[in-house]
């Protein structure tokens, strides 16, 4: 079935012979003012294990640029259409990164997240343009990027405070010292909302990694390019490879794969399609996955500091470990 889809897509794209994956043509000429050099166009790739990769399946899907925003890209770009095996590889990368990430001090995780904010700030224009390219007003894109950068700062500050706030000393009746600490769950999959493409992805994944989990996210299919630009920020932000992996592709194809994957301990799925939500819930039961399926919020809610972020977003992907020890000499 997968093979069939692939063929169909390939056929569809073959109707447009002017655009191919590896030989991008620039539309620079179309802007009227001829340039002396041919612009180097970017091949969009997924971010897995700290590397930018195409889908192992070789498949892609196409994203068009909104009018007036094609200056850095082709009108239509090819984006990898992640496969079941790409999920497998990304989960493996996340699994391999887990030990190192959860053992880092929370302070260090916070610094890395802050570094991410710094890198995003420096690439702010590119992020804004990328969002705008996918449609929508420029000022909305600006607002979204600003909120996204601030959200990275927000979670950077949480990293070394979560435990202090949610851990407990348990005053048990007896000569024992008891305490409960939050711990990362493991590999968490996120199905990011379609919109806002950057803020939605960042708001759903950063709290996951703030708590020490590693993450495999499926980016918005409406605007996967921005997720890839964001991935480039990740790649240059000291975040260890594999901690946050960004796939592009179709949720209806990949969400059940993620839900079924036994190495994945939790899934946070923002899905419009009720049947798909139910499917993710049902498939997740096979390994008692911590499944949270949700109807995407409206775009303004993501901007809202009360609704779009918070301790609960981190706590949702933490386990509580309770430790007992006797007190006596």
């Amino acid at each position: 079935m997968e093979g069939k889809k692939k063929t169909q897509e390939a056929e569809r794209t073959s109707d447009r012979p002017s655009v191919t994956g590896d030989a991008p043509m620039t539309r620079g000429e179309s802007r009227g003012k001829a340039k002396a050099r041919l612009r180097v166009a970017k091949a969009y790739k997924m971010y897995v294990g700290g590397a930018f990769v195409r889908s192992e399946s070789g498949r892609y899907f196409q994203v068009e640029s909104a009018k007036g925003h094609a200056d850095a890209d082709a009108d239509v770009v090819n984006v990898p259409r992640g496969s079941r095996k790409d999920v497998r590889d990304a989960v493996l990368a996340a699994k391999n990164a887990l030990g190192g990430w959860e053992k880092r001090t929370p302070f260090n995780r916070g610094q890395i997240l802050y570094r991410l904010a710094e890198v995003m700030e420096s690439r702010r224009a590119e992020l804004v343009e990328s969002i705008a390219r996918a449609g929508g007003a420029l000022e909305d894109a600006e607002r979204e990027v600003e909120a996204a950068i601030d959200r990275a700062v927000y979670y950077a500050g949480w990293a070394d405070k979560v435990s202090g706030v949610v851990a407990s000393h348990n005053p048990v009746s007896g000569p024992h010292f008891g305490f409960s600490l939050p711990e990362p769950m493991g590999v968490v999959c996120v199905l990011a909302p379609e919109r806002p493409s950057l803020l939605g992805l960042l708001s759903t994944t950063l709290p996951v990694i703030t708590g020490g989990n590693t993450c495999v996210a499926l980016a918005s299919a409406e605007d996967p390019r921005t997720a890839i630009v964001f991935s480039e920020c990740l790649a240059t932000s000291d975040l260890p490879g594999g901690v946050l992996n960004v796939l592009t592709g179709h949720a209806d194809e990949l969400a059940p794969v993620m839900a079924k994957h036994r190495e994945v301990i939790a899934i946070d799925a923002w899905l419009v399609d009720a049947d798909l939500r139910a499917k993710v819930q049902a498939e997740g039961a096979d390994n008692v996955k911590r499944v949270k399926v949700r109807v995407p919020m409206d775009p303004d809610s993501w901007l809202d500091e009360r609704r779009g972020q918070g301790l609960s977003w981190i706590e949702r992907h933490l386990e509580t470990k309770t430790v007992w020890h006797p007190m006596g000499v």
Partner: peptide
Amino acid sequence: GNTYNKFDPSSP
């Protein structure tokens, strides 16, 4: 640690 099967309402 150095005990087993202890329970308490204050202990998650």
